[in-house]
Simulated scan of single mutants.
Amino acid sequence: MNFNFIAQQLEKRSDDALLRNRQLVEQVSAREIRIAGKYYLNFASNNYLGFADEDFFELSTGLGSHSSPLLTGYSKAQQQLEDRLCDLLGYESAMLFASGFSANSSVLKALFHDKSVAQCSAIFQDKLNHASLIDGALQSQAAMQRFNHNDMKHLQSRLEKSKASHKLIVSEGVFSMDGDCAPIAELAALAKAHNAWLMIDDAHGFGVFGEQGLGCAHSIKPDLLVITFGKAIASSGACLLASKAVIDYMLQFNRDYIYSTAMSPGLALATLKRIEQLVAAHDKRQQLNDNISYFKQLAKTHKLALMPSDTAIQPIVLGDAEYTLSVANKLKQRGIWLSAIRPPTVPHNTSRLRITLSAAHRQADIEKLLTELVAVL
């Protein structure tokens, strides 16, 4: 029968406890979530600073952008957002994307789209990089080599053996499933020593790290920096920051950007205003750090094995996918909503509970989480 593989693959996913389903969210904040009429403490949100919970201003400009940015879709609001980000982060130029996935994947595809260039190019990726980065490299014309997670000796060995003329090292600021940070200063030093460029996706670091929330890579300034607006900024979309020459190159060859409708002026203006709030959000960042410390302290007291993370992402690896899903469901019965992360998002036998903390959480929320975790585990 035609396309019978669809039912077969779905059945296999279900048998392996890997079947994914959407949950209809009726109401959500950084602290709480309501699904099917029931409220839960929410430990599955990227709303790190709680900005998504705050009332926002009425849009004073158009919601639609009318066209792609290279036709008539590039507005003053978009330019202002790009200019402000360049000013804050120290770059010559920038360009906006509809999503972080689009930014990451399309930049790598566009950079090495030319076969004559790609045949003497290599992309060096951390093995735990986001799917968007891996997909972009696979769809580019360049060779891709992966180095062990945060293993600078392994990366150095890869670089030393490479005969590529154009080398690009790619990593994340904060790894979304493990919660640890990349050694960006060491990555930059290796890039310089091997005449390579460095690209950092700082989706989970921007807004959270640094005195002004400018992210993990602010003091290093990699050659290509991608930040997203859907996490700490509580907006939507993403931005690539680089030299003027790189952005001009992307305007010629980045198909995702060229053939997509531009970010709406209303969203660009809202994001710009949110960024000004974020830069001044010292108290929120301090509260988030206090909540992370309190969670880790209680987890240590209860002898819960955490991964080595000092960020808002605090995974507990349980291994088996079916067991992990069972634990997450039992926690939901106790009023705790968090994510059961299973393959292929993470490697086999590393299924985990992914706990994300927010500045909006209260100590009592964290105490309730740990009490229920201990009871279920």
Rank of each mutant, 00 (worst) to 15 (best):
W337L: 13
Q277S: 13
A36R: 02
Q145L: 14
S162D: 12
E276N: 14
S243T: 00
G335S: 07
K109F: 01
A359T: 11
G210T: 08
P315V: 10
E172Y: 04
H302L: 12
H166D: 09
K300N: 15
M250S: 03
M307V: 08
K300L: 03
Y323I: 15
C216A: 08
P183W: 13
H348V: 12
I336M: 10
E211T: 05
N4M: 05
G237Q: 09
Q363D: 13
L240I: 07
A321V: 11
L88S: 06
A164H: 05
T324C: 15
A36S: 08
E54Y: 01
L198G: 14
Y323E: 13
F295C: 13
A364Y: 00
H282R: 14
L159I: 03
H361G: 11
N21G: 04
R34T: 15
L111M: 15
I247W: 00
Y40P: 09
I184P: 09
L251V: 05
K221D: 01
A122N: 13
A17L: 00
A281T: 14
L63C: 02
A364L: 01
A44E: 01
L288K: 08
G237P: 02
S219G: 04
F57V: 03
Y257L: 09
A52V: 00
N349R: 14
T301K: 15
S45Q: 03
F56E: 01
S326L: 10
D248E: 03
I341F: 12
I355G: 09
D151G: 10
G266L: 15
Q9F: 06
C216M: 10
L353E: 00
L240Y: 01
P347Y: 03
L224F: 08
I123C: 04
G100K: 02
S99H: 08
S105I: 06
F57K: 10
A217F: 03
L369W: 02
K244W: 00
R255Y: 03
H282P: 05
Y259T: 11
A238Y: 03
A122T: 09
V374T: 12
L108H: 03
S99T: 14
L108A: 10
L369T: 07
P183E: 05
S99E: 04
F253H: 09
D16W: 08
I35S: 05
F97Q: 02
H194Y: 15
L198C: 14
I6G: 14
L159Y: 05
K38P: 07
R34W: 04
F57T: 04
V25K: 04
L88A: 07
I227W: 01
T371N: 11
L89V: 09
D180C: 13
S157E: 14
T228D: 07
G64M: 14
D223T: 05
E92M: 01
A44F: 01
Y294T: 15
A52N: 07
A193L: 02
T371K: 13
E54A: 11
L24H: 15
N148F: 08
N254G: 04
C86G: 10
S165V: 06
R342A: 06
L306K: 08
K284Y: 10
E322L: 12
T72A: 06
R285W: 02
A189V: 09
